[in-house]
Simulated scan of single mutants.
Amino acid sequence: MAVVGSCGLPRSGPNKREIFAGSVLKKGDAFVLTVNDRVTRQTAVVPALGFSKAFKNAGTVGSDTIRAGDTLGLTIWENVSDPLLGAAGTPATVLEEVQVDGSGFIFIPYAGRVRAAGNSPEALRRIITQKLDKQTPDPQVLVTRLAGDGATVSVVGSISAQGVYPIERPTRTLSAMLARAGGVSIEPEIAQITILRGKQRGKIWFQDLYEHPELDIALRNKDRILVEKDTRSFTALGATGTQNRVHFETQTLSAIEAIAQVGGLSTSAADPTGVFVFRNEPAEIANAVLNRKDLKGPQRMIYVLNLTEPNGMFQARDFVIRDGDTVYVTEAPFVQWSKTMSAVMGTLTSAGSISALAE
C-alpha cells in the first residue's frame, strides 16, 4: 500500500492539507480564511456601473434644430402665373433634399445663401419668405427637416441592426435609440451599454436603463453606443461537474450559483467540506477582512467554504464570486483511498495472471 501511495496516484488537484500548507501561518504567501458573515460583508464588491453627472444633466437635443449636414425639403408657392422658380402654370416649386453645407448655409434661387444651421424649420421659413418677398409677391414657404446626417449617433456591438442613426424627435434618448436599432441581441441580464462622448465614457447595465429612469440619458451628436456582453469570468477546477473557464450569467454571482453553473459538485468525488475560492484581493479589502492596515498591493487570499456546516449553504449563497476568481473543490479522502485500493487490486490481479501463465 505504501509503495503504491508513494507512486503518486492521479488526482484533480491539491488536497486540503496541501492548500492549508500554503498559508502565511505556515510560511506560505497566501491568507487562508474561513468564510463567515463578516468576511462575506467585507468582500461583497460588485462592479459599480453608471453615468456621470455630465451625462445625466445633459438636456434633450431639440430635434427641430437644423444643423450643418442636415437635409431639408422646401416647397415654395408663388402667387403669380409666371413664377420665378417653377414652370408657368405650376403653383408650387419643390426643392427636394437641400443639403446644409459645412458652414451651415443653404442656397435658394433668388434668395441667395441663407443660414439654416441653428434655426428651426419655422424660423428658416420666415427668413426665406422675407428674402423671396422682394422678388415675387406674397410667397408661401414650407420647410421640413428630413433625416439627414447632421446630428447622428453610431450603434454597434450586440445589437440587432448596427449602424449610424439620426437623432430625431422619437429617438432623442438612449432607450429610444436602442429600440430604433432593433434592441440588444444578447441576454438582457448580462448586456452592458457603453456611451462614448468625446473624451467621456459611461457604462451601465442594460436592465438598469429601465429600472432607473435617470439613466435614460439624452443623446448628443456623434455619440457612440456600444452594446457588449459582460466579459467577467471565473475558473472552476477540481471535483466539479465541469472544469472550465466560465462566464458570468448574471450581474451578481454567489459561490453556490457558480458551483451550480458548472454542474454542481461531483457526487462521486467531491469533498463538500473543501470548497476553496482563490483570489488576488486589493489591499483595501484585504486589510478590512484581516483587520489590518499595513498590507500594500494585491494579496493572495484563499476563502474556505464548508457546505456541511449548519449554515454552510447560506454562507456559500451569500459569498460573492468576482471576476478572475478560481473556484476549486477538493476530492473526498475516500476517493484517494479507493484509487489506492484499485491500484493494489489491479497489481495483484496482474501478478496472478503472470503466475498463471508461467505455470
Rank of each mutant, 00 (worst) to 15 (best):
L215N: 15
Y303F: 12
N15S: 07
I193R: 00
T173W: 07
L215H: 13
A151I: 10
Y328K: 14
G238T: 05
S342F: 01
E331G: 03
S63F: 01
L253E: 12
A316K: 13
I195E: 07
F51T: 03
G163E: 00
P139D: 05
G8R: 09
V100R: 00
Q299I: 07
G8C: 02
A351W: 11
P310K: 10
F314R: 02
L357R: 06
G13Q: 11
T250L: 14
A218G: 11
L74D: 09
A58W: 00
E122D: 14
E78N: 10
E228Q: 15
S160F: 06
G69K: 05
A283E: 13
D101I: 05
R169K: 09
T90L: 01
V94D: 01
Q140D: 13
I108A: 04
K203A: 15
W205N: 07
S266V: 08
S233F: 02
R279S: 03
M313L: 14
A21W: 03
L9G: 03
S353Y: 13
A218Q: 10
A111S: 07
P333F: 07
A239L: 11
E96W: 09
I321S: 12
T90P: 02
G50K: 03
N291A: 13
V143Q: 14
V45H: 14
A92M: 09
V141T: 10
G50T: 11
Q162K: 04
G202I: 11
F334I: 09
K26W: 11
P166A: 10
A283Y: 01
K199F: 08
D133G: 15
Q130C: 06
A21H: 06
S350K: 07
A30Y: 07
Q135F: 00
A351H: 04
D230F: 15
G352C: 06
F206A: 09
F319P: 02
A161H: 09
R67P: 04
A92L: 03
L209I: 05
S81Y: 15
S6H: 11
V141K: 00
V46F: 07
G73S: 15
Q135N: 12
Q162V: 00
D133T: 15
L253Q: 01
P10S: 09
P272W: 13
K27A: 08
N119V: 00
S6C: 14
T194R: 14
P310L: 08
R125S: 09
G182A: 04
V262G: 12
G118A: 07
R169V: 10
S254G: 00
R115L: 04
A88I: 15
G346L: 03
L237P: 14
